[in-house]
Simulated assay, not measured.
Amino acid sequence: MLVIGAVLGALGVMSGAFGAHALQGLLSDKAQGWYGTAVTYHAGHALALLACGLLSLHTGQGPGSRWLQIAGICFTSGTFVFSGSLYAMAFTGITRLGMITPIGGLLLIIAWCTLAVAASRLRPTPVGG
């Protein structure tokens, strides 16, 4: 999760820079909106995936670890589907791709909910242990 989160984060920064510099004047206002939303969700959920990875290091195989794995899978797949469909719409203008965007959004909602379940199961590690 840490590696995928870090790579998604780097790609999010690159996508944002690409949109701000290389795409100016090339995309319609609507397409720029889709692109901007894709970048925002992409970068934000890369951070959430990093949080899952860091928590996984803390929990090991302990309480909440399975829920963290599910959250990580949903954050990854949700980001690809949600942001990926918006990126594709921005570049191609094929608005029918927007029909799959909510699937990515649902996966992201599930990811946040499973992260909450995982967090509720975490127990503090004793000092020195």
Rank of each mutant, 00 (worst) to 15 (best):
G98Y: 14
A20F: 06
W67K: 08
A43L: 15
L86K: 11
A10T: 02
A88L: 14
H58F: 11
L68I: 04
A43R: 13
L86P: 08
V7C: 06
L11E: 03
Q32E: 14
G16Q: 06
L97R: 11
R66Q: 06
L23P: 05
S83Y: 00
Y41G: 01
W34Q: 06
Q61D: 12
G78A: 02
G33C: 12
A90Q: 05
A43S: 14
M99D: 10
G12K: 01
L68W: 00
H42T: 10
F91H: 01
F80P: 00
T95V: 13
M14G: 12
L27F: 12
G60I: 03
S65Q: 13
A38H: 11
H45Q: 04
S77D: 07
S28D: 11
G60V: 04
A10V: 03
P63N: 12
S28W: 10
G60L: 02
D29Q: 15
A20Y: 05
G36N: 11
T79M: 01
Y41K: 03
G98V: 08
S85R: 11
S15P: 00
Q61C: 04
F75C: 02
C52F: 08
A46T: 10
D29H: 13
F18R: 01
L26R: 15
F18N: 00
M89A: 05
L11S: 06
A90P: 03
Q24K: 15
Q24I: 13
G9K: 01
L26Y: 15
V81P: 05
W67Y: 11
G5Y: 03
Y35N: 13
Q69W: 14
L49I: 10
G44K: 04
A46N: 07
Q32L: 15
A71Q: 02
G84Q: 06
A20R: 03
T37A: 08
M14A: 15
W67I: 04
Y41H: 10
Q32P: 05
